[in-house]
Design a protein around this nucleic acid. Sequence first.
DNA 1: CAATAATCGAGACGGTACGTCACGTCTTCTT
DNA 2: AAGAAGACGTGACGTACCGTCTCGATTATTG
Lengths: 211, 211, 211, 211
Amino acid sequence: MGTLVADKTLGANGGGKRAPGRPRSEQARQSILHSTLKLLHDVGFAELSIEAIAADADVGKATVYRWWPHKAALVADAFLSSAELELQFPDTGSVRSDMKLQMKQLIRILRGRRGGIVAALIGGGQSDPELIKAFRERFVRPRRQEAYATLRRAIERGELPRNLDLDLTLDALYGPIYMRFLFRHDCLNARFVNEICDLVIDGLAMPSLGR
Amino acid sequence: MGTLVADKTLGANGGGKRAPGRPRSEQARQSILHSTLKLLHDVGFAELSIEAIAADADVGKATVYRWWPHKAALVADAFLSSAELELQFPDTGSVRSDMKLQMKQLIRILRGRRGGIVAALIGGGQSDPELIKAFRERFVRPRRQEAYATLRRAIERGELPRNLDLDLTLDALYGPIYMRFLFRHDCLNARFVNEICDLVIDGLAMPSLGR
Amino acid sequence: MGTLVADKTLGANGGGKRAPGRPRSEQARQSILHSTLKLLHDVGFAELSIEAIAADADVGKATVYRWWPHKAALVADAFLSSAELELQFPDTGSVRSDMKLQMKQLIRILRGRRGGIVAALIGGGQSDPELIKAFRERFVRPRRQEAYATLRRAIERGELPRNLDLDLTLDALYGPIYMRFLFRHDCLNARFVNEICDLVIDGLAMPSLGR
Amino acid sequence: MGTLVADKTLGANGGGKRAPGRPRSEQARQSILHSTLKLLHDVGFAELSIEAIAADADVGKATVYRWWPHKAALVADAFLSSAELELQFPDTGSVRSDMKLQMKQLIRILRGRRGGIVAALIGGGQSDPELIKAFRERFVRPRRQEAYATLRRAIERGELPRNLDLDLTLDALYGPIYMRFLFRHDCLNARFVNEICDLVIDGLAMPSLGR
DNA sequence: CAATAATCGAGACGGTACGTCACGTCTTCTT
DNA sequence: AAGAAGACGTGACGTACCGTCTCGATTATTG
């Protein structure tokens, strides 16, 4: 649903009308995204060539370039439109277990087949502001919105202090996960998640005595 | 200094002897490393080409290939031999301030001119295992060794519990920094460092009730 | 009027009737021919693209393809429908001056703005039999018919021998002009025309002694 | 021997020395020229693609582009270096037969396998000044030099007038041949050559009465 | 007055070739 | 033996046009 930067055809056409000319082929679009995911998994981001994607998708190279400005944008679209990433935020009645459950879902993705794609996205984004922005806005932000809700419920229940800095909290929770994911210096498992989560939530609960 | 994998000329020649033929040109080596850093900063890892490095360094392409097996190896060498990255670990008598000082040194580097190179290294490393390994072993690990010492001093002083998981602690402290650095979703300043540090150290001090 | 091969709409409809559906747009046709001439002059036959013609003429590409089978057909149509190439054959009472006048008209065209188009037509025709055929039949032949008349008048008057080979004569007169026009090795002026004309007509008048 | 415009390596190196770097591969050059001729004959100039030439010659596309600026230059080189075009100027003691023999050699080439290449050269030259210049200087001029000698011998022998315009004469002789060759409106045979030759030489011999 | 039918513009489609760039290897002469 | 220079075969790049194809809109004739 939509390309990286701004959808050219399917996007801001709320008015009604219809662009003139032959409409974009939805079939080609699907085929391209599918081939991208397939090849991305087979050869990785660096070795991925638009040439190969077009060939695999039985599509003209120009059709790829017509709709995506670079490989990065294409990969981002392919990834993000690939199963709306079954990440749910549970509501168990406890922040601790809510967050632990959610974080474990995340590391399952990161450690799975799609982890390489996330790494490619973040990695590619380091030399492509558009790409990291897309990753942030289309992958990170939606989940963060849900995480806000989880934290706010906890505040309502009195589990967390009223003046909590939500972003700080979430960075403290997820930062260590992404660090291990990207640096690969240590393992990324449920035990790690549990411990980070406890550490951070314990820290938040403190009446911040020594500051 | 040495290259990423194993130095070919300056390495295991401790005995004495001397290879026959013209010796390696130290000037060429310096020039190559310098040009690599310069271009890495300008265009990022992905766009960096050996062709351009050789041209910029006024050096034959073969001279680069003779001494470094990959672009990754060259970049790692260049980065790590660049100004021994003035990161010192202070000893103020308090973990809290020791770590805060150190973390502020780090964000000064990340936000400065060399930040682009670190980002390029981590980003490029996502599609190049050799590169992320070099970054980890030659940049992260040495500093981590010093951080261990800082934490152990705190344990000795009774500031932190004896059974502390050092790696977990350091990931909890540095993870949020790298996350903001890489995702660029929020600012990376002294206030953030202070708060993360307080949060984590407070959390560690808790008698871990709910676990 | 009409296309190269056979006109599809304006052709064999002499009877009366009328095709159903929307009639062909005369305005589009004119616009296409005009743009073709313009671009042909600017960039030559080889570099001429239907894409550019359609864009310049503010016309859909399909409208061009609907009415002309090749680029060659289009170019031939455009050229030949352009200003009916004001070449008249005078009748001064002398072959010599009749032909000189006519040949001077020709070199004025060749040296003028339309010369580039003639060159493009002949040049393009070397790799496109349809094009050279169109040039021959629609540009060369009509003028040759008139030239025959001029020569026949001269024969009647006794200026030229009765058994004259008309085509040979005309090739001897015009060949040198086209050679200089196409090879560009020497200038193409009135003096040259005069001398060629005298040379050939003198030669024709000879009682062919030495053969 | 040498490229169209100016030979880059083998050319103006009269001083002595040697360009640095790996020398140009003579084998690649030969292979490219050979494949060019072969494909030119098979598919014609318009359909000839550099891609196909490189593939046929087992050579990188870049190697072609390194040495020839366009298809035209390549074709010119290929043609002109293909057998130094066995065109000899005989010396029979009579202009008439000298020229007839030579002109018959020419039409044998034009009507043969290589005729298509000449047509492509002249045709392509109509939209490429460099190409027509190359054709003129490397194909036409050398033969014209020899033709001058033939004519001068005739003048010495008293067959032709002393004040003869050599270029005019040669254009009068060859122009009709090229016209028939390019326009293809009539046949190009020995009889035509004989008649043109007689016509022109007769014309030259006239004491130019009517001028 | 509708229905039918061929046109029009626009522009996306699967292709082919373009001319460029960098790859990593090689061949030459010079140091 | 290493140096620079730079040509080599390879292969992907991103672009330009090819000729074909859908679209909705327009403009005629026919029922």
